[in-house]
Nucleic acid binder design. Structure first.
Lengths: 231, 231
DNA sequence: TCCACTCCCCTAACGACGTTAGGCAGTCCC
DNA sequence: GGGACTGCCTAACGTCGTTAGGGGAGTGGA
């Protein structure tokens, strides 16, 4: 399995392709992706990719798994007993959000492929360890981990769509959210009274606040389960 | 603005195109979509679509909004005061999940475009009305509605991926989840002890149970906020 | 009644795309 | 040294999104 060093270039790996795909997605935005460009990114002809990968589908699946690479574990002190589990889980969630947001363009393309690939396993294992360490039963920990990670991912998707759309139009996120607010406020108030009234709250730029709100609710709900000795 | 009745066929609308796109997505699965096929579906040549739509992007955006069509409102008794808000919100969430799951193939393609389009507004308005009726402040209601809907959508995406993948291979959902379980159970137990231990819980077919778990946690968290006089 | 005008669709074509077939250098094993 | 394998290549296929330009059917004014 030695690499072919004589030609100067080590042979490609599937990971190289996944990374190149992710790089391209971020540099050129969704839609700027093609087998030919991925090939060029790694210095090869398009047809050569099919030596490593069955088709574009598989390449995208690889890229979707590679999305999880580089997600840093929360600092130690994890697997905390007592009430520290809240802080640990909250921090892990914030890191996940920040990590995915850093790849928002790729998230948009790969959202329909989110699946527990090999690289997503390590964060999931850490989360389960924290929850079990906090006293949750096996089933509760599994369900809680699933709920948390699906929520964060759903949240980020909704953040990523206007973000990359604004980016493509050369607008700032503030401009985009202001436009969204105006669209809501301009709605017929007799049919959508609450949307009109809450236009500022719904489309405001306060995504950090909104994330913390959801996170706090979720953790509260989990805490109550733990307190009542769930399952 | 009269329709051209004499030729037998009323002229196309953008809604027709969105519906046809959705139909095609469900019939042929993700990847079976092209401008030419959408055109054929409505009995027209591909180039004619560009009279109604700027490009494929816009067509997909229309389809993503059309996804919300047909989502039935929860039965009346909504906007309930007291503790009934829990039942109302829970029912709305279950209906949303069921509705999106009925279009899982489209969900996969359109996940990266989820945005509050015109047709998504009515369900959101209803949800806000319920929450405000239950005593939540404006900002709390807005945040709660956002948290709930992003979670349901994230959940469904994670459900839709293996579902349509299994469908394409002609496997049953049970087979698919059993395969997922075996993949987890076969992991190195020293590196992923909790994943191996909980393989059955994580990849089991009990998606309904898992959904109810997350829903209950979320509602518990919201209830606590209401109880403490949120805002 | 005729004529301009708009609406909505058509045919034809362009370049880029995903993918396959077949070939050809280097490298490894005997 | 010879065969087999690996990892790339060139060439080509059919399909795709999209544009240019044309035309017929309906509408409103003279």
């Amino acid at each position: 399995m030695a690499t072919r060093q004589k030609t100067g270039r080590p042979t490609l790996t599937r990971e190289d392709l996944a990374d190149a795909t992710l790089r391209l997605l971020e540099r050129e935005g969704p839609g700027g992706l093609s087998m030919r460009k991925v090939a060029a990114e790694v210095g090869v002809q398009a047809a050569s990719l099919y030596w490593h990968v069955q088709n574009k589908e598989e390449l995208l699946d690889l890229a979707s798994d590679a999305l999880w690479e580089g997600l840093e574990p929360e600092p130690p002190g994890a697997v905390a007993a007592g009430d520290d589990w809240r802080a640990t889980v909250a921090e892990a969630s914030r890191r996940l959000r920040a990590h995915l947001l850093a790849h928002h363009s790729a998230v948009r393309v790969l959202a329909g492929r989110f699946a527990p690939g090999p690289r997503a396993l390590a964060p999931m294992e850490r989360l389960l360890a924290t929850l079990r360490g906090a006293g949750f039963s096996g089933p509760d920990a599994a369900n809680a981990a699933y709920t948390l990670s699906t929520w964060v991912q759903g949240f980020v998707i909704h953040e990523a769509v206007p973000m990359s759309a604004a980016e493509e139009r050369g607008a700032t996120p503030e401009q985009a959210s202001e436009e969204a607010r105006q669209r809501l406020a301009a709605l017929p108030a007799d049919r959508y009274p609450h949307l009109v009234e809450l236009a500022g709250e719904i489309s405001g730029p306060g995504m950090d606040t909104r994330f913390e709100f959801g996170l706090a609710r979720l953790l509260d709900g989990l805490e109550r389960l733990r307190g009542t000795g769930g399952d």
